[in-house]
Design a protein around this nucleic acid. Structure first.
Lengths: 210, 210
DNA sequence: ATTCCTTTTGACCTTTTGGTCAAAGCCACG
DNA sequence: CGTGGCTTTGACCAAAAGGTCAAAAGGAAT
């Protein structure tokens, strides 16, 4: 309940400015690695001015995390029982991969948080996130029971989609280093690879259905 | 070249002690999140005593990283062109998954480092690591060219093995939160899932070879 | 233009942190 | 059993970092 609604346009502008700057710094340095001075400089604000909008460094971080959690889970929310099973999965994979490509900072912010034990959002993981995943896993399990997807553990299927797609954001520097400096954009290859992977994994009649 | 050879047994003991403690702290808090006092306390040493064995916090971190890099890549080194292709890959997957289960701290140490841009080991990624991966990718590409594995991008295949297996160490807290508090050990399921995944992905005649 | 509220800032405070140092303790070996 | 090198530590330091505060500056409605 810090600054739930930005009343004036100056507030809106500066809170957006701070959020942008904080996303840059936190995603690159982690929570403890980031300093308030860095964020203030990045936002072109004085430190006391930044602290005027957020009561503490932790408040900025929490604000970011909870704001982003929603958008982060949107692709999974879109997975609908009514669609074609394989299409739904592949669309989810592509949407997640797009997020890694277009929002790597958000991905790294979460990665930093989770790797270090999710100290700030542990609660959400076991409640909101678990609920959503269980719901979608049930849909997938339904498809498999109907014979419309090859059988596999639905939860681990979702984990595998997360890990594979987020890898291209979180471990970007490693991916690029291994591929070499000549190939600047690994994402098209990644999309082709992941499409093949999940198609082969989940197709009921692997070499083309009847 | 700080303390390449531990001369006395006291040195050996204390350097091992410090390494253990530092691995605990660094993997849980990241480089900047860890403090020398924490590591010293964890090692039951006074801070000046710790600094007697390593010249700085950064030196401890670098020492850990380079020591562990080797063991970390061992499973990949074991992948041999002479073996059965699918077996070799599945063995690699299982070895990597075992490392996630038995050495999660090491995995998180690397994850922390890479997510934050690999500031301390960027060099190694583009040289040693790239060389090894290119070599093994060539073996895999050879298998595919011979028709002994289904075609796929070998580099991205390796990335996918890394991301899927390390996910269970690095994002352990998320995995457990989503699966629920009742199922304490996700690794057996993970092994089954990953075996299925890569078998379906790479089998030439997907429903059992002739 | 005045007034009241919002916004901004320079100066400052405290705690944390990486690191130093001189002196003391310890240990092995002659 | 003494001596010289290895090991340990209490005290200390400077820089960095999170955060505060009172006062100045700005803005908008009357």
């Amino acid at each position: 309940m810090n600054k739930p609604l930005a009343r004036t346009r100056i507030q809106r502008k500066n809170i957006a400015l701070i959020s942008e700057a904080a996303l840059n710094i936190f995603s690159a340095q982690g929570f403890r690695g980031a300093t308030v001075d860095q964020i203030a400089r990045e936002a072109s604000l004085s430190k006391p001015n930044l602290l005027y909008y957020f009561p503490s460094k932790e408040a900025i971080h929490t604000h970011l995390l909870s704001t982003l959690m929603d958008t982060w889970l949107d692709p999974l929310r879109e997975l609908q029982a009514t669609g074609d099973p394989l299409d739904e999965i592949l669309t989810y994979v592509r949407r997640k991969l797009e997020m890694s490509r277009d929002h790597p900072r958000e991905s790294r912010l979460f990665a930093n948080e989770i790797v270090q034990g999710a100290p700030h959002i542990l609660g959400l993981l076991g409640t909101d996130l678990k609920t959503l995943v269980d719901e979608k896993a049930a849909i997938i399990a339904g498809w498999m029971a109907e014979g419309r997807l090859a059988p596999a553990d639905p939860h681990h299927l979702i984990f595998s989609i997360w890990s594979l797609t987020q890898h291209y954001a979180d471990f970007d520097v490693q991916v690029r280093a291994v591929l070499g400096p000549d190939r600047p954009d690994p994402f098209p290859q990644a999309e082709a690879y992941l499409t093949t992977l999940f198609t082969r994994m989940l197709s009921v009649a692997p070499q083309g259905p009847a």
